[in-house]
Design a protein around this nucleic acid. Sequence first.
DNA 1: ACTAACGTGCACATCGCTGTGCAAGTTAGT
DNA 2: ACTAACTTGCACAGCGATGTGCACGTTAGT
Lengths: 261, 261
Amino acid sequence: MPTDLDESQRSRAPRKDAAENRAALLDAAVRVLNDDVDASLEAIAAEAGLSRRAVYGHFATRDDLVREVLAQGSERVGASILDIANEDARIEIALYGATLWREVQHASVTAEFAVRGPHMDLVARALEPARAKLRETVRRGVRDGVLRRDIRPDQLARLIERVAVDVLTEATHDGLDARTGHTLVMVTALSVAGLAWHEADELVASTPELAFGAEPDRATTTARAPETGLSTRSEQEAASDRAPHTQGEDVSQAESERGRA
Amino acid sequence: MPTDLDESQRSRAPRKDAAENRAALLDAAVRVLNDDVDASLEAIAAEAGLSRRAVYGHFATRDDLVREVLAQGSERVGASILDIANEDARIEIALYGATLWREVQHASVTAEFAVRGPHMDLVARALEPARAKLRETVRRGVRDGVLRRDIRPDQLARLIERVAVDVLTEATHDGLDARTGHTLVMVTALSVAGLAWHEADELVASTPELAFGAEPDRATTTARAPETGLSTRSEQEAASDRAPHTQGEDVSQAESERGRA
DNA sequence: ACTAACGTGCACATCGCTGTGCAAGTTAGT
DNA sequence: ACTAACTTGCACAGCGATGTGCACGTTAGT
């Protein structure tokens, strides 16, 4: 087993597959823990294609593994959220939703453990900056008169977070495609933030940054189409699959009962 | 121990405190399970003021106890929801929130187990009528043009349910008073349903049925004071603590930051 | 007051899971 | 090819929780 602890004397360099397996374990843990918070170590090891015994070569304790998962997850999610920036608080909130959706896997585990068990504080500490940012965004939105004034901003921020996560789980559990989920999380967050549904839809449809493929400001240099880009028009067309509406609205009876097989 | 099973030959009537203890157990279970889904039987017994051993006099299994809790809870919550009725779908949705808030204790346990563990189907079956009703309400609201059209009605119904429960936990965990919670759940549900925040507030403020003390139509025959009863006036006085607003709106900087004039 | 009904405390068996030691095997670095 | 790094499989100890049997108190029906 990979002796993680004694990096003291090593007569030879550690093998590359060790790190791979470690990563595989963390990855498997994310997947498994996502639908069972207290899955057995056996289950995680199996998912990673390893034996239970081998895990103890990489992590001294099941708790260590979980903590590592949470540390990575919350760090990743937190960082993504801190990247968000926009003058319009509403857009920031939409981006917040979009970001969580992009990080579903990690966001779910993180969120799950943020409420239960003895790891609450860990996640809470790692996520605090992101939460502070959201609180500040909400406050700003309220000051600017674009968000609701009937709920205390701090509480509203917490509600937005909760609801966003909710939609995440509801969405994955329902197995809807990336684009729909993307929109759904944003729109729902905005709704809780106080916008009427058509306002939310309007905002999402008319803001390029909120389009599906939109990179969070730092464009990856390549991957940008010549003319239209991922701008408003191409977005709207692709958005409503085959719906004949002007915007992505009115799915009320279009898909209503066709959801599942 | 009370032999629940053999009601066959009984040389004497069962003691009344037996039933009391049984009820106490179920009650304690609700409380304990509310903040720890898999609390030990020891904990539940302790909360009920009994020994662990005594529990097995009333329930053959921990699972039996839990199932009983869930059966009662989902039955109760489900029934309450089915009592809801109003021509305006929006009001029905608000009442849905209010009802859940009134049943927080049971609603929370039920909701918790509706997602986790091997009791999902039990709760799901017991709650299905209520869920169907909500779905139908949402569909009606969409047809009437008072609810959002950008989310499939069925999905919207599920979201409303999830969000309502969320606010419940967020509210209790935050320890806010009954009146505030009552309003918060309703307003949030309406927001997700598509209303702008001021629309939601307006609706709640102007609809008598949505007032805090309002009985769900069937007045308890007695317990109604000559003039005011639990009616609007005494209600409103206590309502806005010291806030000088016309409605319950604009708490944004009232409590939060006390920022400026 | 008599006695069944009920609760208590303890001991005990069992189960699932974690964590560890050890004797193999297999794989990757040099 | 040699050897350390890594994995496997098994056995074993421990923990916490459930469920049961039994002897003994306590309480409530009649």
